[in-house]
Structure formats: structure tokens, C-alpha cells
Design a protein around this nucleic acid. Structure first.
Ligand code: FES
Ligand code: FES
Lengths: 144, 144
DNA sequence: CAATTAAAAGACTTTTTTGTCTTTTAATGA
DNA sequence: TCATTAAAAGACAAAAAAGTCTTTTAATTG
């Protein structure tokens, strides 16, 4: 469904939202531990998201990654598009070069419904909402 | 969603169902052309499906790949499982080692609905059904 | 301003996926 | 039986994804 990179990205964003909700910042090492990902790998992913304006960061002592109130409203769709591109939103399920109603693949009519559901879900789900459920210990970012 | 290998596999199975419906067989070259895939790559994929009993084949002159009436009832789920494993049927959407109701990731409750829809779709869709729509030129296996 | 801290940048390696090529095996039919 | 045909098998290569490591840049604080 999503690339590993994208899975880590989503998990990291939720973790950052949680850890920075009081206005503080969270470092790469804590993020890597918090979401159980390779430290240098998630660093690279977040730097990329930083350049794209999806996450904010600050260097130096007391520095780290954080999300402000507007960042907490970021949807999963924004993250997925930034990391994996928009294949999942508009690509053909059977790998034809173009998905098209006029020239549909055998799976098209079944697939577009699923694709629409995925799109809706990603568009409506905000990082902040997921972080709130995490705070209530209703969900988890890693398996211990 | 699916690997390239799996996309080619599904397209090839539908093409084979179409070309062998009169009891004849279809060769690798025709399959590769018919679904616009690399010839040697789809050969390897089909040999794999052959070993797993998902497609039938015969060597020598007049040989090739074919599907009998029972093979035409093969579901997409069978093909996807044979090629990509069952990650899409039971894996966690955010990459946790295990998907679990007791220890859900932040996306779990949204994700399981989509996963269920995908599973249902793959379970109910048979190669033969897709082939019939292809015959009526309602759908296509390649872009020209 | 100097030492320290932490992200940014980027080179590099490993693994997986995708794709190619050659040789072998089996079936057919003249 | 022997030449031909076509898949099976398996080695090999290229590209992409995933992961690691080192050096540079920027912010903070004493
Ligand atoms: S053409 Fe394949 S999903 Fe639309
Ligand atoms: S735990 Fe992530 S989808 Fe179920």
C-alpha cells in the first residue's frame, strides 16, 4: 500500500505532533526510538519533508522537529503525496500507463471505488486527530 | 498497491483465459505482446504460477499456456496471494510488525475497512469474468 | 566568541525488485 | 528417430528502495 519510507513518515509525523504539542521540540533519536525506525533513515525522510514544508525543525541545543497548530492539521494525503507521489490517488490498479474511464483496464470499475475510499480517508484524516487517540493510549506507534 | 510482478501476473492470466478459451494454447511471445510486458520477465512469473498450479502449460510445438474451465474460476485473491503474499490481506497499513485489534496503530480502524473491501473484491473477482468483459471490448489489457 | 548541540547534506552500501540472457528439458511431427 | 518448437530453469545485470555513515551548517549558551 505505502512504501516503508511513507509508513515511517506518517508514524514520525504523529509522534512529532504528540511530543511537540507543548511547544517543545523532539530530536531524531527520540523519534527513531518512539516509532521503532532506523535513526539515520528517518532523519533523511524528515529532512525531505522539512524542505517541502510538511514538518518544521530547528537546529542547535533545544532544537529538533515540531509541528505548530497549522501543521497538526496536515492530512495524511499531504504526507503520502509528498513521499510516495500520487500513484495511489490516480494510478491504474493493474499498472497501465494511465487510468482512464474511456480506456479502462479489467479491474478499473472495481478499483476506482476502493481508490476513492482510500483517497477520502487520507484526505479527511489529520495528524492531530491521530495524535489525540495516541495520547489516550487508544492506539500505538510501535510494538514493544 | 500490487507489485509490478503481480500486475503483470493478473493481466497475463486474463489474457491467457481469453486466448485459450477454445482449448488452444498461447505462447510467451504473444502474451508479452498482448499485455505489453517484458517477455522474459512474464515468462519467469508464469513459470512460478505454473509450479504453484495457478496456470497450466505444455511444452513443444502447439504448446503454450492455457487455463481450463476450473482455472478460469481462479480468483484474483489466489493470484495476488501466490505472487505478493498476504500482506495486503492482513498486514498493518502503517508497517507495524503485526496488525491487531488489541494493539492497533493510529490508522487501524480506518484501514481495516479498506482492507476488507479490497479482500472482498479480490475474493469475488474471477479471471473468467474479467475475460468476458475483455472479449466484449469493454476493457483493455494494454494502452496502444 | 568559543564550545556544544542538533539538524542538513550528501556520499556510500545493502537489499529487494525488476528485467535479461543462455542453457536445458520436454513435446510434436515429419 | 531426429529436427523443431516452446516452456523450464537458472545465472546474471540493472534499477530502485531501504538503510548507514561522515561531514557541514546553524542555533544556543556559557
Ligand atoms: S484503468 Fe486500471 S484502474 Fe483505471
Ligand atoms: S495495526 Fe495497523 S492496520 Fe491494524
Amino acid at each position: 500500500m505505502f512504501s516503508k519510507t511513507c509508513e515511517y513518515a506518517i508514524r514520525a509525523m504523529i509522534f512529532i505532533a504528540q511530543q511537540s504539542k507543548d511547544g517543545s521540540r523532539v530530536g531524531i533519536k527520540d523519534i527513531a526510538k518512539g516509532i521503532d525506525s532506523p535513526e539515520h533513515f528517518i532523519a533523511k525522510i524528515l529532512q525531505d519533508l522539512g524542505r517541502k514544508g510538511v514538518v518544521q525543525s530547528l537546529k542547535g541545543p533545544t532544537g529538533g522537529f515540531y509541528l505548530d497548530n497549522s501543521g497538526r492539521k496536515t492530512t495524511l494525503a499531504t504526507i503520502v503525496k509528498a513521499v510516495d507521489g500520487d500513484d495511489i490517488f490516480s494510478g491504474c490498479g493493474l499498472g497501465l500507463k494511465q487510468c482512464s474511464d474511456k480506456h479502462p483496464c479489467p479491474l478499473h470499475h472495481e478499483f476506482i471505488n476502493i481508490r476513492k475510499d482510500i483517497t477520502n480517508m487520507l484526505n479527511k484524516t489529520k495528524v492531530g486527530d491521530l495524535q489525540e487517540q495516541l495520547d489516550k493510549k487508544l492506539t500505538f506507534l510501535r510494538r514493544d
